[in-house]
Design a protein around this nucleic acid. Structure first.
Length: 293
DNA sequence: AACACGTGGCT
DNA sequence: TAGCCAAGTGT
């Protein structure tokens, strides 16, 4: 690797980490008392979900289940109920399954090892790296959507990253990644992406690496890559699933099919959505009625 | 590899 | 206001 490239990246890392020292939010899962379990729960909840919506559910979750063992001892449906309106409720099911696996495989302790984390339900490349880095100080390349966007702009000179992480991105992230203080760099880059280098309207005037940003230097050219896929919601099975689960979460007792019929007019789509919930294990059948698992 | 998967705040 | 977007994972 050319010497110049290394120096440039080292300056970028230093500037972002210094900025983080001044502007980091005081998030509860960043405090030492959160512990590995607090970090793991936060990472599940933060998947595709803004920080502001996670704060309250995270605190309630940890108050009710202060350890993997306490969660594992309750039925998975209680996790789905507690998940409330956070969205993507399969995450609740997987977090419960991860707690069970942690009890069974790891004596109730969150593993620090990347591969052991990766083997847990609902834990992918990002979450494994994040928990290893943030809960245990592991030297991991944490490549989330914020880090990817910061690198795409600052180094790549383009407005948006690819639709999914590429080999080139991983290589770049590994180059920028400092051998010392990797966890702090990752947290800092994520924070910069979340607060300043945002997707829609970046606050470049507040950016600590404005002068070094390849995208700004290039005149902030608009995105020219393949179209970024949106997420339709209204009228989709997802919306119907959400309605069905909303009814079941609100009821301590099994619910008759007739009550579920009220949430959506189209019976074909309604049945399809309910069937998919049953397949996912988010709903179980109790005789002629339905309930959380 | 493209697609499904919730919900709500922001512009 | 109707998209756009948010600390991804599993299939």
């Amino acid at each position: 690797m050319p010497e110049r490239l290394e120096n440039r990246h080292a300056e970028l890392v230093t500037a972002v980490v210094d900025w983080f020292g001044e502007h980091a939010r005081d998030l509860p899962w960043r405090r030492p008392e959160a512990g590995p379990w607090g970090v793991l729960v936060s990472e599940f909840m933060l998947q595709q979900t803004p920080v502001s919506r996670v704060l309250e559910p995270w605190a309630q979750w940890l108050q009710r289940w202060p350890s993997p063992a306490t969660l594992a001892a309750d039925p998975p449906g209680e996790a789905v109920r507690m998940w409330g309106r956070l969205g993507y409720p399969r995450r609740a099911l997987r977090l419960h399954a991860a707690a069970v696996a942690i009890v069974e495989r790891h004596d109730g302790q969150i593993p620090a090892d990347h591969d052991a984390l990766l083997a847990l339900p609902g834990v992918g490349a990002y979450t494994a790296a994040a928990v290893s880095a943030f809960a245990f100080g592991g030297d991991e390349v944490v490549l989330d959507t914020n880090v990817r966007r910061v690198l795409a702009r600052a180094v790549g000179g383009v407005e948006f990253q690819a639709n999914s992480p590429t080999a080139a991105e991983r290589r770049l992230a590994a180059e920028v990644w400092p051998p010392e203080g990797a966890a702090r760099w990752s947290a800092a880059a994520m924070e910069l992406g979340a607060l300043v280098c945002t997707a829609a309207t970046p606050r470049c005037v507040d950016c600590p690496i404005l002068a070094d940003c390849a995208w700004v230097t290039a005149g902030r050219p608009p995105h020219s890559g393949p179209p970024r896929r949106g997420q339709a919601y209204a009228g989709t099975d997802r919306q119907v699933r959400g309605r069905l689960l909303e009814v079941l979460r609100a009821s301590e007792e099994p619910v008759a099919a007739a009550r579920l019929d009220l949430v959506w007019d189209d019976p074909v789509q309604r049945d399809r959505a309910l069937a998919s919930l049953l397949t996912d294990g988010l709903v179980v059948r109790r005789g002629k009625e339905y309930a959380l698992p």
